[in-house]
Design a protein around this nucleic acid. Sequence first.
RNA 1: GCGCCGGUCGUAUAGUGGCAAUUACACGAGACUGUAAAUCUUGCGGCUUCGGCCUUCGGGGGUUCGAGUCCCUCCCGGCGCA
Length: 416
Amino acid sequence: MNSITFKIEKKLKGKLGRAGILKTPHGEIETPAFVVVGTKATVKSVNPEQVRDAGAQVVLANTYHLYLQPGDETVKKMGGLNKMMNWHGPTMTDSGGFQIFSLGVAYKKGISKVIQITNPSLLIPERFDDTDAPRLAKVGQDGVSFTSHLDGSIHYITPEKSIQIQHNLGADMIFAFDECTSPSEDLKYQNEALERTHNWAERSLREHNKLNTENKVALFGIVQGGREEKLRKKSAKFISELRVLRSLGEAGEAEEIGFDGFGIGGSFAKEDMSTAVKWVNDILPEDKPRHLLGIGEPEDLFMGIENGVDLFDCVLPTRLGRNGTIYTKYGKIHITNTTYREDLKPIEEDCECYTCKNYSRAYLAHLFHGKEMLGGTLASIHNIHFIVGLVKKIRQSIFDDNFEEYKKEFLTKYVK
RNA sequence: GCGCCGGUCGUAUAGUGGCAAUUACACGAGACUGUAAAUCUUGCGGCUUCGGCCUUCGGGGGUUCGAGUCCCUCCCGGCGCA
């Protein structure tokens, strides 16, 4: 009996894309699916009923943040992630690997998850030879030391520790501890980092194997390798084929176990993303779910799905929403712009979300100008509905055999 | 009527001889991709070939190389005494 099962129901002709169903202990996920991010066990500004009503099937929380506050043991005492946050559906946790990047090389530097290759200076390693620069995460031999942004305390996270924390948090699907590298690192470093990620993958899998006695938790391995084709393919192969032995009781028998699913990680140059995803998904086993970590924008979702991605997560719908940027089928709008102050239309006329059914742009503009909390909530609800809904529509287009037409129709109207 | 205090970029302020002028809010625009983010950046007198140029601190006049700052006068507001 596996913790999760994945069944492909329909494939995209001539492409790697597919639509399927992922079964977890807390319910089914129709894939491709967009996972809503709730880093600290809350989707910021939105309650679980609103998250569900906006169409979300699954939420993702973060190991690093919940370990620091309130502490994974405390989460466990509260009954685990689902019970604590009153979310009844499937859950995931990220391993903390992204914080190696965001609190490390990327710390205070304007390097983000996705960079534009039109700014090539970000890709020149020499420009970033700043080993002395202050950072809150430092990679060591065995794990990573983090300086807490909350109180300055030092914490050493190893793959084993990350997996232990994640088991305490109690999500259905968890991730191996990996190192998300910056594209500004040179090839030598990318190589070293990848070796480390592979080593950590094995240690994560072993620790998970020890702790997963009830077989309720699924572990996803993460493919890294930066922008290098060789490294990406090497990583996909290694992570796919990684096995550890699990004993089957007293008789001394053992079975080989590998990862239940796969994550594709890294900080991408936008232009490189599709080729990297393609390299990797060509190699990853077809019968296991694939999660493109931390992506993305509407155009990225089409790209990912057509190249065989089953799951996405991204902070954008909620972060943008909170900050007054709202998705529409014609592109994003800034609701605080003067033009919306007396605009009585909903964000989108034909949108079925709670926000669009009940409120005008003018009211949202008012809430944002007045710094009322409800503004961020209503905008987040719409953005979640929009992005989650977009992935659902793309999924439907796979079943309807009109993926290409839908993609073209959407992207023609949608102005970046 | 007399005395005192005060009038600075939408608002509130800083500024006591070198100032296109502080700070906050408001306003305008932008950014955000496994969330140190309900955050951050940036503009906010006009023009600019980005070197500058012009016009500004209640009105008018004066002193000075130079005035938001000093002097005179007028206008407006607040307080006190008649």
